[in-house]
């Protein structure tokens, strides 16, 4: 099948055009004040001054804290769920799992909007229950950390369950027998065998939850939170005059991601973490 080698070349070109060249432009832009992307007409501008302003730093910090909390909660909830389903002696395991990840196919923004509406006074449930004479308490979580975190957990939980389930499902059942045979009780088997092997799934889950939480803006804005870094980048690109700043912040995020992946790559040398 070596004759197919040539087919990798167009992919390489495609990737160079859509990944490498834009990054180069991004780097050039980040030093300029431009109107749109007219990089050859731009003038030098020290965007770093803006970047290291209190506003941006606060946004970065807030984004990090929110996503860290959401990721930890997702992990705490998702691991037992994935573990229970993967180890269940139940024929329709896959059906239960698909039921849990099914909302991945419905619109994320709309779902966020739906859960956000519950955090506000006078939502569809309070009006429904009023009809039968029950007054539901108002949560008043809209635009509060509580509301943002709860909403994000609701959105991103399936992305944590799926990879952990996959890693647990793949574990050869005979490993449990072997561990039992070598004197480990159920608790020890979990800590010494199951958990270490599922670390790859956990890493994937963390990437899948942490990244969009920290850098996205759609979900957070629906929940009433406009103070995250994603919103900031979006605003910079809404206005042609501030493309340079937006480019610089995007670059910083890119560098952080590459750094994080480098660490993951050190731990997992085969690079099997993804999928």
């Amino acid at each position: 099948m070596n004759r197919f080698k040539k087919m990798a070349i167009p992919y390489l070109i495609w990737m160079i055009i859509l990944v490498l060249i834009p990054i180069v432009i991004l780097i050039i832009m980040s030093f300029q004040r431009t109107k749109g992307i007219k990089i050859f007409e731009g003038t030098f501008n020290n965007n770093f001054k803006i970047i290291f302003s209190k506003d941006v730093m606060q946004r970065l910090w807030l984004s990090f804290i929110y996503s860290a909390v959401v990721t930890v909660f997702c992990l705490i909830i998702a691991y037992p769920v994935a573990y229970i389903i993967a180890r269940a002696n139940f024929k329709h395991r896959f059906l239960v799992l698909s039921f849990l990840i099914l909302p991945m196919w419905s619109n994320t923004l709309l779902r966020t909007k739906g859960i956000a509406s519950l955090f506000m006074e006078g939502n569809i449930f309070t009006s429904l229950f009023e009809k039968i004479g029950i007054t539901l308490p108002t949560l008043n979580w809209y635009a509060t950390p509580m509301g943002v975190i709860t909403g994000m957990i609701s959105m991103y939980l399936p992305f944590m369950i799926l990879p952990i389930y996959n890693s647990l499902e793949k574990i050869d059942k005979s490993l449990y027998d072997a561990s039992d045979d070598l004197g480990a009780n159920a608790f020890k088997t979990f800590w010494k065998v199951t958990f270490p092997i599922s670390l790859k799934g956990i890493t994937t889950g963390i990437i899948l939850v942490f990244l969009p939480c920290a850098t996205g803006f759609g979900v957070a804005e629906q929940l009433g939170e406009n103070g995250l870094i994603g919103t900031y980048i979006k605003t910079q690109f809404d206005n042609e005059a501030t493309y340079g700043v937006g480019a610089l912040v995007s670059l910083i995020i890119l560098v952080i991601i590459i750094g994080a992946l480098f660490i993951v790559g050190k731990v997992d040398k085969e690079g099997e973490t993804l999928l």
Binding site: A8, Y11, L12, M15, I17, L18, V19, I21, P22, I23, I25, L26, M29, G36, I37, I207, L211, P212, A214, T215, G216, F217, G230, I233, K234, F237, G246, A247, S250, I253, L254, I257, L261, G271, L274
Partner: peptide, 27 residues
């Protein structure tokens, strides 16, 4: 190396991908 390159859009933040794509399209 190709697999590494292939993984870039997967692990990259959506917003960074979006910005880079917008830039190249505008060009």
């Amino acid at each position: 190396k190709m697999i590494l390159l292939n993984n870039v859009p997967i692990v990259n933040a959506d917003i960074v991908t979006a910005v880079t794509l917008m830039i190249i399209f505008q060009v």
